[in-house]
Design a protein around this nucleic acid. Structure first.
Length: 377
DNA sequence: AACCGAGTCAACCGCGCAACT
DNA sequence: AAGTTGCGCGGTTGACTCGGT
């Protein structure tokens, strides 16, 4: 019963790694990779270490794609924003800071950022001003419940996104290239650029629903230059098909939710057909799938997706520099009367978002300013 | 020069969860 | 179903460095 017995309790080395040990680990991973078992790796690599220690050394130090040195201002902002939303979930934060390790981010937070925020009178746990005086200095009154609600949405989204990244990383490693044409199953998506088969995790649609809802609620976080915002519109007439079917009016309207889900299912069908038809497509780092606008139009036309109107195609085929606000405007213009009566369109959410947006900008501006005089830096 | 305290960061520890049998 | 194991995560530790006295 159970797995094979755990490691023999031999005396394993602890403490700092020597260059020789590093070399052994590097050489082994370069030759064999570490996919399989960390536990079995040390013996095979000739190391008197436990697998856990090897894994840590690789992830935090030896990995070739690690960026070292000072954190940039942008990175600092990202950490602060994400920490405000996620708390001490360093692994989730790490997925948005490529080339940094969770250990490094954790250390940097504990030794630098936490202290600096505290100095500024901001509680590093809640990310809110500690005193009324500072609050008034920022010049905003805060709707704590609303902010909390926003954070919950965004936090859940980011966590799901992080999960996506992890899943796709594993799949990119475990699925060899050049096989996708003959092995496509329901959950697999070929990427012509890389030749790899990416997975479409089950949580994707829910995630994208959140994306759409949150983006709509908050007028797209691009204004914040949020590194977490994934609802972007590139310039080359590509469209993020994963966003299809979920528009800004998703929240606060049950019948509309149902409508959106129905539309999503229809478009999901089209997505499958486009994939099977082998149209031009690619995926981005966040797992979103991008199609050529022309391909989408052609395929939609060719496949005559039932119930998918030209308006729907127009809705999802926006191109160019549209951005979030543009997207919202166009979406609204193509909706029926019920949609236009939603809370979003009467500005209820926008007002709150403006407040929150200003709140974040204030903190970050204050933080940026502090970086210039802070003795810590 | 010696001591001391603060800061930094690599590495360890313990836990929870998922996978495995 | 239940016991066992591996992995990943977050918290913590301790060795080392550096500046001040």
């Amino acid at each position: 019963m159970g797995r094979s017995p755990c490691c023999e309790k031999v005396a394993l080395k602890k403490g700092p790694w020597t260059p020789e040990e590093d070399q052994k680990l590097l050489a082994y991973i370069e030759q064999h990779g570490h996919i399989g078992s960390w536990r079995a790796l040390p013996a095979k690599a000739g190391l008197q270490r436990c697998g856990k220690s090897c894994r840590l050394r690789w992830i935090n130090y030896l990995r070739p794609d690690i960026k070292r040195g000072k954190f940039s201002l942008q990175e600092e902002q990202t950490i602060i924003q994400l920490h405000a939303l996620l708390g001490n979930r360093w692994s989730a934060i790490t997925t948005h800071l490529p080339k940094r390790t969770d250990n490094e981010i954790k250390n940097y937070w504990n030794t630098h950022l936490k202290k600096r925020l505290t100095k500024m009178g901001i509680d590093p746990v809640t990310h809110k001003p500690k005193t009324n005086a500072l609050g008034s200095a920022i010049g905003q009154t805060r709707d704590a419940a609303n902010l909390s609600h926003m954070a919950q949405w965004e936090s859940t989204r980011i966590e799901a996104e992080a999960r996506l990244v992890r899943e796709s990383k594993v799949l990119l490693v475990t699925n060899p290239p050049s096989q996708y044409h003959h092995q496509l199953s329901g959950g697999q998506i070929p990427n012509k650029a890389t030749g790899f088969v990416a997975s479409r995790p089950q949580c994707l649609e829910v995630l994208k629903a959140w994306q759409g809802a949150v983006s709509g609620m908050f007028g797209i976080a691009r204004d914040l230059e949020s590194p977490t915002s994934t609802l972007n519109f590139p310039e080359n007439n590509m469209l993020a098909i994963s966003n299809l079917g979920f528009n800004e009016n998703f929240v606060g309207n049950n019948s509309l939710q149902a409508s959106c889900f129905e539309k999503s299912n229809q478009i999901q069908g089209l997505k499958e057909k486009i994939i099977l038809d082998d149209h031009e497509m690619t995926t981005d780092q966040g797992g979103a799938i991008w199609f050529q606008e022309s391909s989408f139009r052609t395929s939609a036309h060719e496949n005559n997706i039932e119930g998918l109107s030209e308006d729907d195609v127009m809705l999802v085929c926006e191109s160019g520099d549209g951005g979030g606000h543009h997207h919202q405007q166009q979406s609204s213009s193509s909706m029926d009367g019920e949609d236009q009566n939603s809370d979003i369109n009467n500005g209820a959410y926008n007002v709150n978002f403006e407040d929150n947006k200003n709140y974040w900008n204030s903190i970050l501006n204050l933080f940026n300013a502090s970086a210039t005089w802070s003795p810590v830096f």
